[in-house]
């Protein structure tokens, strides 16, 4: 999949001058950053043998709470509150799955609905604005065109990559996804691994929510409805099966850039916004179908 991504980026760069414009390339990183951060968290949850459907709702809630708190107390406490919501929902998801024994689909589908419902009720589903100026300043802050949210994305990618590759916790995420019972018999506290994994997943959703508020300057209750499925799609497109035990952060990164580049190219070639989801869907089917048929031939 990485090869396909590189080839399409090269082809687009040769064929289209606007695509290879550095500003556009930085723009792609910026566009990829929010769902990209979530996809990195999703990657961990998928390696552990689960996934999280609540990340979009959690991101919206985090962004809104961050906005609300920033009106009362300033932007820094707002950010902390936003991240805490993400972490909290993640811990609840992880506990429902590990301690109560619910399956990840039901647990996170339920928490998604609860979070969305509470958020709509408290905000009347209306955006929280106007916000302190600092939000937009943060959103526009950049070093050589690399925006704040792009930098956060890079930090999350590198950080979670190191966790997966070099730490005992990372090792245990793979082991739990590969053989939960066997890993528990080997003396690993499986429940803790699962809860910590979903906590990190929730935290990445919280980070994305805060990023969204900084980019738009508004707390949006209705944001993020497609993010859970998009981030799962990114991980799968990047070559990680949903069965657990395998994969790396590179999958999430390759997948999210594949989706973003496709999106960017459709915009550059002025493909109607109504047609874009269809092409996006075809892209997903093609990428995942290619991977699936390759696995089938290998087996």
């Amino acid at each position: 999949m990485l090869v396909m991504l590189v080839l399409s980026v090269l082809a687009l760069a040769i064929a289209n001058p606007s695509f290879r414009n550095p500003a556009n390339l930085l723009n792609i990183i910026q566009q990829a950053s929010m769902v990209g951060v979530i996809a990195c968290g999703m990657q961990l949850m998928i390696i552990s043998g689960g996934f999280d459907l609540s990340v979009g709702a959690t991101a919206a809630a985090s962004g809104c709470l961050a906005a609300y708190v920033s009106l009362q107390m300033g932007i820094a406490p707002g950010m902390v509150a936003g991240l805490a919501v993400g972490l909290g929902v993640g811990v609840i998801n992880g506990s429902l799955i590990a301690k109560v024994g619910m399956n990840p689909f039901v647990a996170t589908f339920g928490s998604q609905a609860v979070v969305t419902g509470v958020l709509y009720a408290l905000t009347n589903a209306r955006p929280i604005a106007p916000l302190p100026r600092e939000w937009r300043e943060l959103g526009f802050f950049n070093i050589g065109g690399l925006t704040f949210s792009s930098m956060v994305f890079i930090v999350v990618v590198v950080g979670l990559h190191l966790v997966l590759r070099y730490t005992r916790f990372g090792q245990h995420i793979y082991a739990v996804g590969s053989n939960k019972v066997g890993t528990s018999r080997a003396g690993v506290k499986v429940d803790r691994v699962i809860i910590a994994t979903y906590a990190i997943g929730g935290l990445t959703a919280g980070i994305a929510g805060v990023m969204l508020t900084s980019i738009t300057g508004v707390g949006s209750p209705q944001a993020g409805t497609t993010w859970a499925l998009l981030s799962i799609a990114a991980v799968v497109i990047g070559g990680t099966p949903l069965t657990g035990g395998v994969g790396g952060i590179s999958s999430a990164v390759v997948g999210i850039f594949a989706l973003t580049v496709l999106n960017n190219a459709m915009t550059l070639y002025s493909i109607s916004a109504f047609w874009q989801p269809a092409f996006m869907g075809l892209g997903v089917l093609f990428a995942v179908g290619y991977e699936a048929s390759r696995q089938k031939r290998k087996a």
Binding site: T167, R168, F169, Q171, A175, N179, G182, A186, G187, G245
Partner: peptide, 30 residues
């Protein structure tokens, strides 16, 4: 056998009893 099939031999042998280089925050570096 209770092995983690996706992990390598070394990781399975040491599963739950990993050798740690040092601790970084709450994380143990293998």
């Amino acid at each position: 056998l209770s092995l983690a099939e996706h992990l390598d031999v070394l990781s399975n042998l040491f599963l739950g009893r990993e050798e740690v280089l040092f601790k970084f925050g709450g994380l143990s570096i293998l």
